[in-house]
Simulated scan of single mutants.
Amino acid sequence: MRPLVAVVIPTFSQTIEQRIALGISEAFSEVDVDVLFAPVGYFPKPLLWHDSGLQPHRDIIALNPTLVIFYSGGLTYKTTAEVSERVLAEYEGIPCIHMGVKIGDAPAVQVNNYQGMKDLIDSVLLKRTNPSVVFINGPSEN
């Protein structure tokens, strides 16, 4: 039986999610590993939490993945650490890697958005005579 890597993402609708899927797919294309992309939706806000939201995760676990990669930067965009930890507790005992946001003790791949935005402002916006950017925002944890 070939190893299975499950990639848990919120949707395929965002460009970043499509690029993540393409990159992971290309990375595993040369090895004897199956990759499952599982768009499970965003983790809910605490007031909207129901245990029924765990079913897609239980379905993934039932496939016995060797590794689970979470695009936690997208999955956790609308929720709290408590809800995230509740969902991720379902995966206990399965090796996991997080991308975007570090959760618990699992390894994480993170991006320095602060430096990226500073470079953007320095190299693009500050060189314009009349920059017309009004507001740039994103989650402070990201």
Rank of each mutant, 00 (worst) to 15 (best):
S29E: 06
R2C: 04
S84H: 07
P44E: 02
T15F: 10
M1F: 09
I20T: 00
V109Q: 04
I69R: 06
N142W: 10
I60Q: 08
K45Y: 14
W49R: 13
V111S: 09
E30H: 14
P107E: 02
L120P: 07
L75G: 02
T11F: 00
G23E: 03
K127S: 11
N130S: 13
I24V: 10
I60S: 02
S25M: 06
I9D: 03
Q55H: 12
T15S: 13
A38F: 03
N137G: 15
Q14E: 13
V87K: 04
Y71A: 12
L88G: 02
G41S: 03
L48G: 09
V33M: 09
I9N: 03
G74D: 05
S13R: 15
T129Y: 09
D105K: 15
P131H: 06
I136L: 10
E30Y: 13
R58F: 01
Q115H: 09
V5S: 00
N142C: 09
E92W: 00
Y42L: 09
A89I: 05
K102N: 07
G74Y: 02
I9Y: 07
Q110R: 11
T129Q: 14
V111Q: 08
P56I: 03
I60V: 08
L48Q: 14
I60A: 05
S13Q: 14
I121K: 02
I16K: 14
G53N: 12
T11R: 10
E92V: 01
A21P: 00
I9M: 05
T76M: 15
Y42G: 03
S25K: 10
N112W: 06
T129L: 12
V134M: 13
F28E: 02
G23A: 08
H57W: 14
I24G: 00
L48V: 07
G93T: 01
P46T: 04
V31S: 13
V7Q: 03
I61N: 00
A106G: 00
T76A: 13
S29W: 06
Y77S: 11
S72D: 02
V83L: 03
I97K: 07
G41I: 04
V31N: 11
V109N: 01
L48F: 13
S52E: 12
Y114I: 08
P56Q: 07
N130H: 14
L48H: 14
A6D: 04
E26P: 02
R19E: 12
A6G: 07
H50N: 14
Q14M: 12
N137H: 13
K102T: 04
A38P: 04
G100A: 07
S25T: 05
P3L: 07
V109M: 01
A108C: 07
E26N: 15
A62K: 06
V40K: 05
I69P: 02
G104I: 01
I61P: 04
L126G: 06
Q115L: 11
N130Q: 14
T129P: 07
V134Y: 11
N113M: 10
A21V: 07
A81E: 15
L67M: 06
S132A: 13
Y71K: 08
L36A: 11
V31C: 09
N142I: 09
V101L: 15
H50Q: 14
M99P: 02
K45A: 15
V40P: 04
